[in-house]
Nucleic acid binder design. Structure first.
Lengths: 110, 110
DNA sequence: TCTGATATATAAGAATATTACATGTAAGGG
DNA sequence: CCCTTACATGTAATATTCTTATATATCAGA
């Protein structure tokens, strides 16, 4: 698994990305992110839930209580229009960061 | 410039990378990293210095006071063998993280 | 002598992460 | 029926890290 220090800041992008696929509740988000990144990205639920509240306060996502088929209550989050709008510039930033780090490496190896 | 939340955790890799080129003091590190990443990565010095102490405590880098030609004292940091050893797995981790995030995006866009 | 660049550092507060704690339901096996 | 595993959400305490502001001091040039 990827170390703790590294994945700082990646969680928000991961959550927004996974929600682009459709509404999801926290537990399932974590499961899918772990699955789709082949275990590379895995956050503890204790880190996830507070993060979801923060993102909800910023109006990037919106949560609503739902009852699943098996009668379990769970909080289902969906992307808001604001969150959707946030997604491409956020990806752009990440992409720039990757390039920047690659440049550093290149120079160091030259 | 890249947003604050994003660059979390990137600083250590950047510092180690830049020190691979040779010993440097903090101020110059910041300048070069900013230059070589074309302004994408830029950290405030107030964030840099405490980070250098942390990395020194972990024995990844070692600092020593030097006096430059113009008589100014400055703290010159160099990679330790341990820091050098840390560098490739750290890059590996980053690379995995990038791929993981790309996978998420791919799935979301599919 | 004043300003801007160089150079390092700390303090206070905000944001975030980790670990541990706390609760409860459902499904399946023994 | 009981136990365990998976599902599902949360809080509290603590630790770490980041930002903003402040402080110090030298040097070069106007």
């Amino acid at each position: 698994m990827i170390g703790a220090g590294i994945k700082r800041g990646t969680a928000e992008l991961a959550v927004l990305s996974i929600l682009e696929d459709g509404p999801l509740h926290g537990y399932e988000m974590a499961r899918r992110i772990e699955e789709q990144t082949k275990g590379a990205l895995r956050f503890t639920l204790a880190a996830l839930y507070p993060m979801l509240y923060r993102m909800e306060q910023r109006r990037w996502i919106r949560g609503s209580w739902e009852t699943s088929d098996n009668g379990r209550r769970r909080r289902c989050y969906r992307l808001t229009p604001a969150g959707k709008k946030k997604l491409s510039p956020l990806r752009q930033e990440w992409s720039e960061l990757f390039q920047a780090l690659r440049r550093l490496k290149k120079v160091a190896n030259a």
